[in-house]
């Protein structure tokens, strides 16, 4: 049986752990550890900060949620991680010094799996720094010849992360949400009343 998964990636502090916690059905398992006195100076090179969560679906199916910082030295893990991937959620935070460079770095790191599957980009920390704007992110994606939804998100807000994942899925199959019965061939009602969308 295939092990289906959604990959959450992005730099440290972008909100991966928080985002997985927001939608996972189990408390997320994370290897993030507080550095001890002995490892404080080594942390940057010794911790594999992986996160794990799961979405339980009916009929015993499940989708695994993996968070990975995607540092280069773990690149050997990427093909393993990509196995069964439904798509990639890239979280980029505006609170780091060069967010667009971060985006490019992660587009590069996940190039193959993004090409084979789907991508959605969530920009966090926009409540703290408005810049770069979503337009800047979109232009960066355009340069990389990638079409993907780009949303402003706060990883602490479940609706934001849920919507981002939904967009990732629709980017694979725009007809996914069609569960309505086929249209009838009856003529329309004589006067259709306008309805409120706001």
């Amino acid at each position: 049986m295939t092990h289906f998964k959604i990959i959450f990636s992005g730099p440290v502090g972008a909100g991966k752990t928080t985002a997985i916690a927001a939608v996972s059905d189990i408390p997320p398992v994370t290897t993030d550890t507080e550095p001890t006195d002995e490892t404080r100076n080594l942390k940057a090179t010794t911790t594999i900060a992986m996160d794990y969560g799961v979405l339980h679906l009916d009929g015993d199916e499940r989708v695994h949620l993996y968070g990975t910082p995607g540092q280069d030295r773990f690149s050997f893990m990427r093909p393993i991680l990509a196995e069964g991937a439904i798509g990639v959620i890239l979280l980029i935070t505006n609170t780091r010094p060069a967010p667009l460079a971060d985006l490019n770095e992660f587009l590069d790191a996940f190039h193959t799996v993004i090409q084979d599957t789907s991508l959605a980009v969530g920009v966090t920390g926009m409540d703290i720094h408005r810049h770069p704007s979503l337009d800047h992110y979109r232009q960066t994606l355009l340069h990389a010849h990638v079409t993907a939804p780009v949303f402003e998100v706060d990883a602490r807000r479940r609706p934001d992360i849920a919507l981002l994942v939904q967009a990732l899925l629709l980017n694979i199959d725009p007809g996914l949400d069609d569960t309505r019965p086929p249209p009838t061939t009856e003529p329309p009602p004589a006067h259709t009343t306008a309805r409120d969308y706001w």
Partner: peptide, 24 residues
């Protein structure tokens, strides 16, 4: 031309599906 920033807009029924189709 781009996906609307749906997390900060009113998501009307079918809006995300249409966006997925029309950006493609």
């Amino acid at each position: 031309g781009e996906w609307p920033n749906f997390t900060r807009l009113i998501v009307t029924p079918g809006a995300m599906s249409i966006a997925a189709l029309w950006t493609r």
